[in-house]
């Protein structure tokens, strides 16, 4: 899998796929997409990179180990879940800003929840695959 074409292509594919995954994530509330799919696409982007450049290189590129993403994502989702309680509302009540933002639409707690899911999915998939790649050699 060390073909030069794929190697070169994956360098350019990584940012494009990541951008695409964020696009999928953000439009999720209005069109097909969302945190799960977005996270999976982002994970595929990194996996592709690791296939051509080796796991170590991808880990270096990521700077932080993907397993660190799991608690971050969980915390984000949990915060957006419990945030309404500060307002005295039940858990998971949707909170929304009044002004819509272009492309994304309205920003609300559901969006942050979805971003949390996105981060967890990336963390989980990459942790599993990279650990297997590293340890099963």
């Amino acid at each position: 899998m060390k073909s030069t074409i794929l190697k070169t292509a994956s360098i350019y594919l990584l940012p494009i796929l990541l951008l695409f995954s964020i696009f999928i994530l953000l439009r999720g509330h209005y069109f097909p997409g969302g945190g799960f799919v977005g996270g999976l696409i982002a994970a595929i982007a990194f996996v592709l990179h690791s296939f051509t450049h080796g796991t170590e290189a991808t880990l270096k590129l990521l700077r932080i180990h993907p397993s660190a993403l799991i608690p971050v994502g969980l915390a984000l989702a949990a915060i957006s879940m419990f945030a309404p309680m500060l307002n005295g509302q039940p858990v998971m009540t949707g909170l929304w800003f009044d002004q819509p933002v272009p492309v994304i639409g309205l920003i609300g707690s559901a969006l942050f929840f979805d971003i949390g899911v996105y981060v967890v999915v990336i963390g989980v998939v990459l942790t599993i695959l990279f650990t297997i790649a590293q340890y099963s050699g």
């Binding site: 799960f36 999976l40 999915v121 998939v125 599993i128 099963s136």
Partner: peptide, 20 residues
């Protein structure tokens, strides 16, 4: 089904590592 698909990935990964 969407959640089932994602969960099944976790299950498969765990099972495959366990088998390994």
């Amino acid at each position: 089904i969407l959640t089932a698909i994602v969960i099944s990935f976790g299950l498969q990964a765990f099972a495959i590592v366990l088998l390994k």
